[in-house]
Design a protein around this nucleic acid. Structure first.
Lengths: 245, 245
DNA sequence: GTTCATTATCTTACTTCGTACAATATCTAT
DNA sequence: ATAGATATTGTACGAAGTAAGATAATGAAC
């Protein structure tokens, strides 16, 4: 491990960015965890995808870099939602050793800026930086390093507020054409509560930016459902109108 | 200025906390700015109260320290609302020079975690750390260092969202006993729009946690207004009930 | 091909909340 | 007593959320 003889260095906190990438798999809200490659032990451990920021990198840029390294995606809406900087974050020596090993830096303390996204990944990429990634239900998280469990809990609370204020993020997540059921199930899983089918229909029709198509879902063992699409132009038109009042 | 010979040091970003302390003065939303003590020039310049975090200090603790240093207050609700870390924050050499002078550190880059509060200050304290502080209308800000103007703009947007979700913060700001007009004017100034007097009355009465007292405002050149008080217990009872649904 | 299970879609009634809007009451100063 | 100022109060409408029943379409089972 590379260290330095200058004891002053530990004065400076390190700054990292962690991404809480949420998705739905097997009807469950999941978070993308990456394998922590630890030469020392043979246990498989997981962590949030994240990294120390580069020397001249904006926080948002670091978040998009991490998103891309972990998933291959580029244009998913990412939201900064909180920074975590308790000195006790690095209380666990094992976590610090791992990070020093990975970063080749002497680590005294780390402040992390946490980002959040709702994203779909077709094939999980095995990136250069991270080991294999895995979608893990938030209800069944393994033990995680640092305060990653707290960060994930905060992200789950936050995405509900975000979705309330910016409904478009759910359409980045869904396919171009989707049924009312798909949209409703997505909401149900994110908010972890049941939504009345009929009222949801009415609500969706009243929005104005979710529009019918002529296509229907085929091959289902019941009445086929109509496909809808998200009208991005209309959405932004309505949103601008709101902001000018 | 104390520097170091180790060029590696510039690798590490510095981390600071800045506080956007909002208050109302002369019917205007104001932010508390502290004088930037700059030996070099004789201009008076202002900045947000803030400081580099101490070596083993939590972010929230740093924010409360800064609040206390700038105002003498201790228990005001403070909310972390965003971190700012663009490398261009330190594009202005003058700002960097000032900070290096003040901190006795070589500054390459600073990431700042911004906090927000609504607070009333009886007498502005002249702290050891800061020069004289001043309440400045957000509509008439002077030129500010770094990206402090952007931070303040974000804080003003944020406090409206915060107040929507946590109405209690406005009662920490008002006196124990307040009139409907005082409450309404506070809202009007924070949201920068007029609110119908009658509808506001009705709304306030429906809340349940704003209760009448028998006292009235005296010495006004018009009909005396009734004093109300904030029922903290009832507020938290209702809030807990909401969370369990 | 009739029935059944299942989901989709449409509808209606009720409640809650926000909003628009004007007259009367009370206090001080003169 | 009057003027000037602010406090207090009620009603009607429409929008949006909620609860709940009826009908439609489809594949599967028989």
């Amino acid at each position: 491990m590379q260290t330095t003889n200058n004891p002053k260095e530990t004065l400076y906190p390190h700054v990292s960015v962690d991404c809480v990438l949420l998705g739905i798999h097997d009807e469950q809200l999941c978070v993308l965890l990456t394998e922590r490659r630890d030469a020392g032990t043979d246990r498989t451990e997981y962590k949030l995808p994240g990294s120390l920021i580069y020397e001249t990198e904006d926080l948002d840029d670091a978040a998009y870099r991490i998103l891309n390294e972990a998933t291959g995606l580029k244009r998913v809406p990412l939201k900064q939602f909180r920074s975590f900087g308790s000195p006790r974050r690095t209380a666990n020596k094992e976590d610090v050793l791992w990070l020093e090993n990975a970063s080749k830096l002497k680590i005294g303390r780390i402040i992390t800026v946490a980002y959040l996204a709702l994203c779909k990944v077709k094939r999980l990429k095995i990136s250069d930086r991270y080991g294999p990634a895995q979608w893990t239900p938030i209800a069944r998280l393994p033990r995680l390093p640092f305060d990653h469990e707290e960060i994930i809990a905060a992200a789950v609370r936050e995405i509900r507020v975000w979705l309330d204020m910016e409904p478009s993020i759910v359409f980045d997540y869904l396919p171009q054409l989707f049924t009312v059921s798909q949209l409703r199930r997505t909401y149900e899983i994110i908010y972890n509560r049941n939504i009345d089918v009929r009222n949801f229909h009415k609500k969706m029709n009243s929005l104005g930016y979710v529009v019918q198509t002529d296509e229907t879902e085929q091959g289902m063992p019941h009445r086929s459902a109509r496909f809808y699409r998200f009208d991005k132009k209309e959405y932004h038109r309505m949103r601008n109108k709101l902001n000018t009042i």
